[in-house]
C-alpha cells in the first residue's frame, strides 16, 4: 500500500518545528506502524537526509516507549494497542496519515516525534513505591488478599506509563496514569501503610509539573492501550479525600 505522511519535524527541543510531507510506497499491510517508519527512515538515510526520530524499544506492546499521535488518536486508529502493535491494515491505501508527538507542557518535544516523559518518573519518585520494611518473602497465601482487590491491583499495574492518557486528554491531565499507580499499591496490604502520604505527594507532584485537571471526559480510558479504567481515578479521588480528612 502507498501512503502520504505528514510528520512533525523539529530538529531540537528549542528549535521551531513544522509538518513535512513524505510518500511511502509498497508497504505491506502486515507491517507494523513502526516498521513502516523504519522503511521511511531507511529511504531518508539513503538520500542523506536526517531520519525521523521516534521512541520505541520492545516492540511487543509492554515497555511503554512508543508513542505517536496518529490521525488524532494516541497510538493510532486501533483500540487497546500501542503504536508498535498497530498494523498497516488499519489504514486505507492512499490515505494521508498525520503523525504528531504527544502534546503537553510537561512532555516537551526533544526531537521530531520524541518527547521527554521523565515527568512520569518524577511522579513515581514522589511516592509511587513502598518504603516500609516488609520482611522476607512470605509464604504464599500467608497474607490474605481479597481476590477482587488482587485483580483490580493487577489491572491497574498493567499501566505501562506510555502517556497516551495525557496525550488524549483535552487538558493534558495525568490523572489516569497517577491513579493507576496509586491504585496498584493502595489495593494491597503492603501499599496500604503509606497510602495517605503517597496519594497526596503524587498528586502534588503531578500538579507541580503542570499537567491539567481532570474534567471526567474519559478520553484517557478510551485511548489507553492497556485499557486502564477511570474507576482508578475515582479511587484516587477517594483516597485523596480520605487522606485529607483523616
Amino acid at each position: 500500500m502507498d501512503l502520504k505522511l505528514k510528520i512533525w519535524r523539529q530538529p531540537s527541543a528549542h528549535a521551531d518545528g513544522k509538518f513535512v510531507d513524505y510518500q511511502v510506497t509498497k508497504i505491506s499491510k502486515d507491517a507494523s506502524f513502526l516498521e513502516m517508519l523504519d522503511i521511511l527512515n531507511e529511504e531518508l538515510v539513503n538520500k542523506g537526509e536526517d531520519p525521523v526520530a521516534f521512541d520505541h524499544d520492545c516492540r511487543e506492546g509492554i515497555c511503554g516507549m512508543c508513542s505517536l499521535f496518529i490521525n488524532g488518536r494516541p497510538h493510532g486508529p486501533d483500540n487497546a494497542v500501542t503504536t508498535c502493535q498497530l498494523h498497516m491494515r488499519k489504514f486505507k491505501d492512499g490515505e494521508t496519515v498525520t503523525i504528531e508527538p504527544w502534546r503537553a507542557k510537561p512532555f516537551p518535544v526533544l526531537k521530531d516525534l520524541m518527547v521527554d516523559r521523565s515527568a512520569f518518573d518524577e511522579i513515581i519518585q514522589a511516592g509511587g513505591f513502598v518504603s516500609i520494611a516488609t520482611g522476607g518473602v512470605p509464604d504464599a497465601n500467608s497474607i490474605p488478599i481479597r481476590k477482587q482487590n488482587a485483580d483490580l491491583a493487577m489491572d491497574a499495574a498493567a499501566c505501562i506509563g506510555c502517556g497516551a492518557c495525557v496525550a488524549a486528554c483535552k487538558n493534558a491531565s495525568a490523572m489516569l496514569f497517577v491513579s493507576a499507580k496509586v491504585s496498584q499499591l493502595a489495593l494491597l496490604p503492603q501499599g496500604k501503610v503509606e497510602a495517605k502520604e503517597r496519594v497526596q505527594k503524587m498528586v502534588a507532584k503531578m500538579d507541580e509539573l503542570g499537567f491539567g485537571n481532570c474534567t471526567n471526559t474519559y478520553a484517557c480510558e478510551a485511548e489507553c492501550p492497556k485499557e486502564i479504567s477511570v474507576t482508578n481515578i475515582a479511587r484516587m479521588n477517594r483516597e485523596f479525600l480520605v487522606a485529607k480528612l483523616s
Binding site: E100, A167, A168, N171, A172, G212, A219
Partner: peptide, 23 residues
C-alpha cells in the same frame, strides 16, 4: 490551568470522549 497544560495543540484534533458536554 487546563489551557496552560497544552501550550501547543494538535493539527488533527482528538475526538475520543465518553462525556460529550465535558468539553
Amino acid at each position: 490551568e487546563n489551557w496552560m497544560a497544552r501550550p501547543k495543540g494538535y493539527r488533527v484534533k482528538a475526538g475520543s470522549e465518553d462525556s460529550f458536554f465535558s468539553k
